[in-house]
Amino acid sequence: MTIKSAQQLVQEAYTEVKTINTDEALTLVKENKCNLIDIRDVRELEKEGRVENSIHIPRGMLEFWIDPNSQYFKEGKLDLDKEMVLFCAAGARSALAAKALQDMGFEKVSHVEGGFGAIKQSNFKIV
């Protein structure tokens, strides 16, 4: 039995999902063309802060909260017609999460290169 490493899965996800930089993400937010989704753990948000106007969906609940047919669907939390722009701390989890959304059938999905670390160094407002 051969299993793929987490790093292999992340590398595959990087080749299959759209990666955008912080400037591109900020433009999408300012133009109201996306849902900016923070998939970090709640403890990370408490420790590091959160991005203004982002929506927190923990990685472990993403597929359930975003699926309209799930009992956990968060009605009105997201605009499912807009691009889903995901970020985590550094970019690996968000790449995997973006791939999962693509696998669900979402077509407008991307993740922020460098994650929250890059976002903190950009023009996003951290609250």
Rank of each mutant, 00 (worst) to 15 (best):
M1F: 11
I3P: 00
I3S: 15
S5D: 06
Q7L: 07
Q7C: 01
Q8L: 08
L9R: 14
Q11T: 03
E12T: 07
A13C: 06
Y14G: 03
T15V: 02
V17C: 06
T19V: 04
I20C: 09
E24L: 09
A25Y: 08
A25V: 01
L26F: 14
T27V: 10
V29G: 07
E31H: 13
E31R: 15
N32K: 15
K33A: 14
C34F: 04
C34Q: 07
L36W: 05
L36E: 05
I37S: 12
I37M: 11
I39L: 09
R40M: 05
R40N: 08
V42H: 15
V42I: 03
V42G: 10
R43E: 10
L45V: 03
E46I: 02
K47C: 06
E48D: 14
G49A: 08
R50H: 08
V51E: 03
S54C: 09
S54K: 11
I55M: 08
H56N: 15
I57E: 06
I57S: 14
G60P: 04
L62E: 05
L62Y: 10
E63F: 07
W65M: 12
I66A: 13
N69T: 05
S70V: 02
Q71P: 06
Q71M: 07
Q71Y: 06
Y72A: 08
Y72I: 00
F73Y: 15
K74Q: 15
K74Y: 10
E75D: 10
E75G: 02
G76S: 06
K77F: 07
K77R: 07
K77G: 03
L78E: 02
D81G: 15
K82R: 12
K82F: 10
K82S: 08
E83K: 14
E83Q: 15
F87I: 00
G91I: 01
A92C: 01
A92K: 13
R93G: 03
L96T: 02
L96M: 13
L96V: 02
A97G: 09
A97D: 02
A98H: 11
K99A: 04
L101K: 11
L101P: 02
L101G: 05
Q102N: 07
D103G: 03
D103C: 05
G105H: 11
G105I: 01
F106L: 03
F106T: 01
K108L: 05
K108Q: 12
V109S: 08
V109Y: 11
E113H: 13
E113C: 04
G115N: 09
F116M: 03
G117R: 13
A118I: 00
I119Q: 05
K120Y: 05
Q121Y: 08
Q121A: 12
S122Q: 06
S122E: 04
N123D: 12
F124Y: 05
F124S: 04
I126P: 03
V127L: 10
V127A: 14
